[in-house]
Amino acid sequence: MTMAGTRIEVAPSSRTETALALEGLWHVVVLNDPVNLMSYVVLVFRRVFGFDEATARRHMLEVHEQGRSVVWTGVREKAEAYMFTLQQWHLSAILESDEKN
């Protein structure tokens, strides 16, 4: 996977803007879908993030009941890697910037 900090080859002003946009903290958010089994989502959270059963289940229920759950927060590059892995498991995952930080 191409890394966020090394793939941008554009004009200097655009590069600066993009670099600033990619700084800060990013949330990995999992969205609800009507197909995946609850037990499958729990298993994926445990496998991908190393959550214990209770934490994985809490996030799964949050997705199921509230439609979304923030499962990880950190730097953009690692957030992208987590999003990719979740998508390999066919979960709907997005990145959101934590604009407060």
Partner: peptide, 19 residues
């Protein structure tokens, strides 16, 4: 599953989808 890749730049998006 339709994935939300619109925040990625075009080149990365193509590689990402292909992978």
């Amino acid at each position: 599953a339709p994935q939300h890749l619109q925040d990625l730049d075009e080149e990365l998006r193509t590689d990402w989808r292909s992978d």
